[in-house]
Amino acid sequence: MSIDPFPPGKSDTDSLSVENGILRGRDGWLFLWDGSNDVSRYYTDPGYFGAPELAGWVTLLRARAARCAQIGAQYRHLVVPDKISVYPQHLTAPLRYFDQHPGARFARAFPDDTLCVDILPDLRGTRGNFAARVEPGGGEAEGSDKFFFKTDSHWTFEGCQVAYLRLCESLGVTPCDLSKARPGPGKEMVLDLGAKLSPPVLEHARFGRVLRHSKRQAENEMVRYNESEGLAKGTPRFVGCMVHNHNDQPQAIAKRVVLFGDSFCEFRPHLLTAMLSETFRDVHFVWSTSLDWDFIAALKPDIVITEIAERFVNRLPKDDFRVSPD
C-alpha cells in the first residue's frame, strides 16, 4: 500500500499533533509515534529496519525452526502489527516508506511459509471475509476497525481472535468455541495511550474473560507480585513472567505448547495465552522475546510459538533467556 506524503511545501513534521510521544490521528485514534520505540521511523526512515536487520531475523527464525524440529516440535512465529500498519487511514502523518515497515518485510521474506504467520491482511480486511469468523465482542466498531482500541496500543478481544484463528489454521488444529468468552458491557477507562495525554483520554473498553476450562497450575514469583500489588500500584514487572495452564477437558487437544511473547499474549485470562489454553492440554507462557532452550528441552513441547510486537523487532533476540519457574 502506498501512502501519499503531505502536499509539497510542507515538511514531514508540519501539522502533526504529537504529545508525549503520542500522535493524534483522525476521529479520536491515537498512535505511538516517537519515544523509546521510535515507531514512526519504521515508516519514515528506510534504513531503520533494512535488509541487514531482516536478514538477521530470517536466519534466527530458520535456526529456531530447525532446532524445534530436532526435538519433534512445530515452530511458529507471529509479528503483531503496529496500529500504524493496520490503520494508516486514520493518521494525519506522512508515511513515506509505509511499504517497508517490518510486518510487510517479514511477509515478503516468508511467502506462503507457515513458519511466520502473517495476520496483517486479516486485520486490514484485505484477505477475504476473515472478520466474519470472529466472535463479536459487542463493541460499537464495525469491520476491521474493531481489532484495536482507539486509545491503546493493544488489540481488542476480536483482534486477538484474528491471530488465534490464523495460528490454529497454520497448525492444522480446530479452534475452540469462544462465544461464551465475549466481552461484557465494559466501562469508560483510561488506556495506555490515552493515559499519556493531558488531560487523559477515556475510551469505553470491553474485555472478555477467556479462561473457562483451562486452569492455572503454576506461576512464578513475578506473576504473583504483579497480581498482588504490582498492577494495582502501577509498578508491574513483565519480562520474565511465567504461567502454566492445564486443560483437562476431553475436547482439549492433547498437545503441549510453549509460548514466548509479550503484552499481546499476557499471563492474565483475556488474550492469546488464554485462547491457546482453552484449545490445548497444556500451555506454558513466558513473557520474553528471547527463548530459553533449556526450559523448552525440559518440557518437550509439541509446539513452540514466539510472538513479538512489530515495534520491538529492531532488537534481534539472542535466545539466551533464563526462565525463573518459582
Rank of each mutant, 00 (worst) to 15 (best):
307 E>A: 08
286 V>F: 02
313 V>S: 01
187 K>I: 02
30 L>Q: 01
38 D>E: 15
300 K>R: 15
147 F>I: 00
7 P>G: 12
268 R>V: 04
37 N>M: 12
115 L>P: 01
200 P>H: 11
72 G>R: 11
9 G>N: 04
69 A>Y: 10
56 G>S: 08
312 F>K: 10
90 H>W: 13
289 T>C: 06
293 W>P: 11
136 P>W: 07
5 P>M: 09
15 S>D: 15
82 D>R: 00
2 S>K: 14
227 E>T: 04
240 G>V: 09
228 S>I: 07
126 T>Q: 08
113 D>S: 09
10 K>Q: 14
11 S>W: 10
25 G>N: 07
7 P>W: 09
208 G>R: 01
19 E>R: 12
60 L>S: 09
117 V>R: 05
18 V>S: 06
70 Q>Y: 06
290 S>I: 00
190 V>M: 05
107 A>T: 08
135 E>Y: 12
161 Q>Y: 00
60 L>T: 07
191 L>S: 10
263 S>G: 15
177 D>L: 05
78 L>Q: 03
29 W>E: 13
183 P>R: 04
104 A>F: 05
163 A>L: 03
22 I>L: 05
7 P>V: 13
35 G>W: 08
103 G>W: 00
76 R>S: 01
158 E>H: 09
265 C>N: 13
318 K>W: 03
85 S>W: 01
263 S>Q: 05
125 G>H: 10
110 F>G: 04
61 L>V: 03
192 D>R: 11
257 V>Q: 02
41 R>D: 04
170 S>T: 15
261 G>K: 11
260 F>Q: 07
94 P>W: 00
321 F>E: 02
188 E>G: 10
58 V>H: 03
275 M>Q: 12
124 R>G: 06
34 D>R: 04
175 P>Y: 07
4 D>V: 13
146 K>P: 01
259 L>I: 05
196 K>W: 10
5 P>V: 08
317 P>F: 06
60 L>E: 01
150 K>D: 03
157 F>G: 05
261 G>Y: 03
121 P>C: 13
229 E>Q: 13
237 R>Q: 14
27 D>G: 12
3 I>H: 14
241 C>I: 03
155 W>S: 06
79 V>G: 03
214 S>H: 01
321 F>I: 00
148 F>P: 04
241 C>N: 14
253 I>C: 11
50 G>S: 15
1 M>C: 08
161 Q>R: 04
290 S>N: 08
319 D>H: 07
301 P>H: 06
